[in-house]
Design a protein around this nucleic acid. Structure first.
Lengths: 159, 159
DNA sequence: ATAGTTGCAAAAGCTTTGCAGTATG
DNA sequence: CATACTGCAAAGCTTTTGCAACTAT
């Protein structure tokens, strides 16, 4: 088990992948889509659609909520972002290109997220695939807990 | 790794635990709450609030949605049920008393859920606790995949 | 030109909340 | 008999959808 840091800004490569995906699947290459991708690849947190929408509204490139949701969906399809359901309220996303596969540990008091990698998870996936009638396509492991130091400044979901 | 079967009906014990919890925490012992607990402990699936509401409406003991949500919350507090966020749409629940700890594998095409146990997960939890500044209180591992046989009869979430 | 996209607002779906009436302790 | 609980409906929030205007190809 190792705690990892996933921050990076490989947006140049991500843009290329996105272009290809759009072309190969008959989608249009609109400036809104690239503006959203760029915004996402400059963040290092686990954001939700609303946070992305609000941040882009303030920035130089305004896009509508509908476009945000639409683009998040396309980016999920081509695996440039991952979708998370840490709780029942909102779907959260994070960039994935250039980021090692990892899982999440989250503090239920303050929302702080720590990312880690553990090769045993991969072994479990293989075993599950072998012992069931299913082809495994993905997984999500979320470890819930509470910070030992006082993290009493309230719950800030995006980390 | 082993696939497990979690069906059972230990409702007698669960009722006792619920009674104690309600008493110790200043909650009232209303018939609605026990009717809901009983309904839950006679199911062996991963249900959502609406399914429970609809089923109880048809049965001999009608309760309101508000009461369903309220009671599900209390039952979570005393660990008689577990909450799951398999996808971003609805929160699902399952009974936990008398059920071995386990994780879930879910087919993204038909919604079929298979339950399994793997002792390596417990090891990962311990490692995460040791390598972070967090006290681990729980976890959720969901393995996503697709049935190999054709499960084309559509998505039925409750399994 | 012509279809895919955007933006806006309305609608949908799950969950929470307010309040008047009810029943538990 | 005081106050927590229930039921109902309304409100709240996130996400989806319908449609006219727009634009990438």
């Amino acid at each position: 088990m190792e705690i990892i840091d996933t921050s990076n800004t490989k947006d140049a490569e991500a843009i290329e992948i996105f272009k290809e995906f759009l072309e190969n699947n008959g989608f249009r290459k609109t400036p809104e889509r690239f503006a959203i991708l760029s915004e996402i690849y400059h963040r290092n947190d686990h954001f939700d659609a609303e946070a992305l929408y609000v941040h882009m509204k303030k920035s130089d490139y305004h896009v509508s909520r509908a476009t945000v949701y639409n683009t998040l969906d396309i980016l999920s399809q081509c695996n440039l972002i991952a979708k998370h359901h840490f709780d029942g309220h909102v779907t959260r996303y994070e960039k994935t290109y250039g980021v090692p596969a990892h899982d999440h540990m989250i503090c239920t008091k303050c929302g702080k997220i720590t990312e880690f990698r553990d090769e045993r998870i991969e072994a479990v996936r293989k075993d599950v695939a072998a012992n069931s009638d299913m082809e495994v396509t993905g997984h999500a492991l979320i470890v819930y807990g509470e910070c030992k130091d006082d993290c009493t400044t309230g719950f800030s979901p995006a980390h």
